[in-house]
Amino acid sequence: MSDSFPAGLDGERLKGLYRALCITRAAEERLEILQKQGHVTGGLYRSLGQEAGSVGAAFALRRESDGTGDFLAPTVRAAGAMFLFGATLVDFFRQYMARETSPTRGREANVHWVDYQKGFVGPVSPLGTMVEIMAGVTLSFSLRGEDRVGMVFYGDGASSTGAWHEGLNFAAVQRCPLILMVEANQYAFSSPTAKNTRVQSFTEKAPGYGIGAESVDGTDVIAVYEAVSRAAERARGGLGTQLIELKYFRRLGHAQHDSQEYVDPALIAEWEKKDPIACFHRRMVDNGWATEQELETLWHESEEDCRVAAEQAIAEPVPHGPDAVDDVYTDVTTPHPWTRGVSPDPRLA
């Protein structure tokens, strides 16, 4: 075998990276099938072409399952990072299909779920908020003297929000061990980056906050892993908040309902040549880090895992309507509509 392993990784870990990329793509491809079958009722968001960004980044962090590891706040296009943090495929499908068994019991969609033991907090739809939230999560690491770092993903568009600025500024001032991952995929829904900012690179914003920053090819999983490893080391070493820009391209529309007509097809074709999985596959084989056969097997296993997990989720029940009143408060009951009882009584409203 090869003695030229990159970035301190060995053959097993490189295959782990490859598998994580495969799982991410296979899970999203399975979602498309589930949506066509009518099982996915809400929006469907792909990370095609961006998988190396989320996978390489999460791979560089300490992932534990007992609530002591590093902590992640992904976006809907960073499911790959969530899978590496221990999010299961079946939970992923349950969320998209709003099953009673889903982590949010059908209250919330897609990757919007939380597991404090595994170490992730899913996003909310208002953009930028998670930078504020993760400033506080990582503040708690500082206050308790815990050797943990946080990582928050967000896109080109979220970089324009007040929440992004306020959360980042707070984290920077408090020297919170937080790594910001900007998914510079060149579009915020239909708006190109130039409509959100005058800067050429989001790293230009970092000096305004007194934080370190680095830009990296977001299609190169090894490069992302190395850049985030460096950022995590700086954050752990007391240098506080860091920013990483993932340079890549969103090769599909914002969501499945967006046919991306506003993008030149030639540009999309150009980025297809930089497909993160195909490129890594080639590199693995060319360098002798894995055989063609091994990688083929990893892809087929990933597809099969996704198929099996989706089948399980499909078979599970949807929530019971009246459960909608549960869990608004820990200790206050929310009344059912007074017209839903056997004999309507407004005094029960």
Partner: peptide, 26 residues
């Protein structure tokens, strides 16, 4: 000063940070 934190003038930012800290059991 770790338990009495003077914040930047940004109510959204420090309220959000408080929420993050609450997630972690504070």
């Amino acid at each position: 000063d770790r338990r009495v934190i003077d914040t930047p003038i940004a109510e959204g930012g420090f309220t959000g940070a408080a929420a993050g800290a609450a997630h972690m059991g504070l």
